[in-house]
Design a protein around this nucleic acid. Structure first.
Length: 271
DNA sequence: AAAAGCCCCTGGATGC
DNA sequence: TGCATCCAGGGGCTTT
């Protein structure tokens, strides 16, 4: 589920409410992608100083270290003063003085990892190779163009890889390429500078718009307040195989790239 | 050394 | 209704 917009929408939905909270307990459910990396008891007594985001990771700054939370494919967070008893797919609870933060993740591709600091080996292993933040001023056009020039893989795969720009998953890669009129199979280094510039702008626009709409809820995503997103309703190509293109009326195509589905319009995306 | 494949896991949709 | 198969929003690791 969660790409950058969903993670950001999740962050916005609880960051202010959890700030300053004292951690009273932590509970683990079934194993997630990686172990927590510390004893739950080591979190007790620390405070949540703030919640940031890096790519698709949420970073909870604590007094002594940080908790890195990844939602994987099926994760979502809830934050409330009182939550029901944990269900079969609730695999992490952070009980604080201001409420409980809970990770619900049926497929368990998500993770909650403690690190002593952002420069620790643990944190650098997860965050060290991430590309530019698309919604921040450091999303530099010429660096983006250089990044594309250096790769011969299909542009869709380069967007997904997160080494040039972070946070673009399958939905938004398809949508950004549609907006830019670029065919997903084109090798990244073959894009002209103007086309790369168009894609740079499209990535930004699509992600910003999706954040405004509360993200995409394909099946079960919701923010920490339980609200679903609505961006999927305005998707131009994602999930619309064999349906008419909203611009030209031609049928949206579906292909496989790197074992994932790609959707595009053969007419509107020519280059 | 870049690039392509392989998995981790569960559940919903589809087809016979 | 039952069972098998396929597919899903990610991404680190291993293999070419």
């Amino acid at each position: 589920m969660p790409e950058l917009p969903e993670v950001e929408v999740t962050r916005l939905s609880f960051a202010d409410r959890i700030q300053g909270a004292r951690i009273d307990a932590a509970r683990l459910g079934k194993p997630l992608r990686w172990p927590l990396g510390c004893l739950p008891s080591e979190l007790v007594g620390q405070h949540v100083l703030g919640v940031r985001r890096r790519g698709k990771y949420l970073l909870l700054d604590l007094d002594r270290g940080l908790l890195m939370v990844h939602l994987g494919m099926s994760g979502s967070l809830a934050f409330a003063a009182v939550l029901p008893a944990p269900g079969a797919h609730d695999h992490f609870d952070l009980v604080t003085s201001l409420g409980t933060l809970r990770l619900h993740d049926p497929r368990r591709f998500g993770a909650v990892v403690f690190a002593l600091g952002e420069q620790s080996e643990t944190a650098r292993k997860l965050l060290g190779r991430l590309g530019m933040e698309p919604l921040s001023p450091d999303f530099d056009l010429s660096a983006f163009q250089r990044g594309l020039k250096a790769r011969r893989t299909a542009i869709k795969q380069v967007l997904l890889a997160g080494e040039v720009v972070v946070g673009v998953g399958n939905i938004y890669a398809c949508e950004a390429l549609f907006m830019a009129g670029i065919r997903p199979t084109v090798r990244a280094n073959k894009l002209s500078r103007p086309r790369a510039a168009k894609l740079h702008a499209a990535v930004r626009e699509v992600l910003a718009r999706a954040v405004e709409r509360g993200g995409s809820t394909l099946r079960d995503f919701s923010n920490a307040d339980g609200d679903a997103g609505h961006f999927q309703l305005e998707a131009m190509v994602y999930g619309r195989a064999a349906q008419p293109c909203r611009v030209c009326g031609g049928l949206v195509k579906s292909i496989r790239q790197g074992q994932r589905s790609t959707f595009f319009c053969h007419t509107c995306q020519r280059f």
